[in-house]
């Protein structure tokens, strides 16, 4: 396997003078799908932001595919690692058509053959070519999230950071997006680091998960353990019970 896809060592992240994440140690293997779970305010999204370079105030070590990550923006890094945000309604520019949204990363990185690449990526996320010149407000929530995923795939990254990719969507649309993410991972050999508070989604999508509470990782568990509910930490058991483990 060589280098892990994502390696976090003694990571502390602060916003101003408040330390929100303490002492995170994590290693995600290449091709693995790893989940960060916890309630809001537990710091799980902040970890993703730090990896993506959106929360630059951190100490410790972050490396992706063996390359240590600096604190500032890094265009080489953007080619290997991309992020998909929670709210498809907020993450697309309202006055740019899908084509322009997808073209932008190619322009920034000076890549050629743009039309063919855009057509190809639209196919990959299951969007018809007729959506290419539409504005975000002409698309449904599920279609917008597909565009956001397409944008992340534009640069052919190896690692994807997913911040609650389905929590703004209906169950039926959620199923479509989850299937899509699973298929893309198999087809393109991607590594996922996914933030969610939905444990059944973890059970469907992920191999392992880390449970966060109040800025710290309390337990790293196998997704299979969700079948039996046998966890070592009290907080994880609480979360498991709150997710309606007994129902259905």
């Amino acid at each position: 396997m060589g280098n892990p896809a994502i390696l976090l060592k003694d990571l502390d992240i602060s916003y101003g003078s408040t330390k929100v994440v303490r002492d995170v140690n994590l290693s995600v293997a290449e091709g693995e799908s790893f989940a960060l779970v916890g309630e809001s305010g537990s710091g799980k999204s902040t970890v993703l932001k730090a990896i993506a370079g959106l929360a630059p105030d951190w100490t410790g070590q972050i490396s992706v595919l063996g390359q240590p990550r600096g604190h500032g923006p890094d265009s080489g890094f953007a080619k290997t690692c991309q992020m998909v945000f929670q709210d498809p309604y907020g993450s697309l520019h309202p006055r740019k058509v899908v084509d322009a949204v997808l073209r932008e990363p190619l322009k920034v990185h000076g890549l050629g053959n743009r039309d063919a690449r855009i057509a190809e990526v639209l196919n990959a996320v299951g969007l018809d070519q007729r959506f290419r010149f539409r504005f975000p407000h002409q698309l449904s929530g599920g279609q917008r999230q597909r565009v956001a995923i397409a944008r992340a795939l534009m640069l052919e990254p190896k690692v994807m950071l997913l911040d609650e990719p389905t929590s703004a969507l209906d169950v039926s649309v959620q199923a479509e997006i989850l299937n899509l993410l699973k298929r893309l991972r198999a087809e393109q050999g991607l590594t996922y680091l996914m933030v969610t508070h939905n444990l059944p989604v973890v059970s469907f999508m992920c191999d392992r998960m880390a449970v966060m509470n109040k800025g710290e990782i309390v337990e790293i568990a196998d997704a299979k353990q969700l079948h039996s509910g046998d966890f070592s930490h009290d907080y994880t058991r609480e979360l498991y019970a709150a997710s309606g483990a007994e129902a259905v």
Binding site: Q174, A175, L178, L199, P200, V201, F204, A245
Partner: peptide
Amino acid sequence: GLLAAVPQMKETREVLPV
């Protein structure tokens, strides 16, 4: 269809029905 599309805690399906 709606019921089947919900992921389960003890998920074993490879693909969710849509």
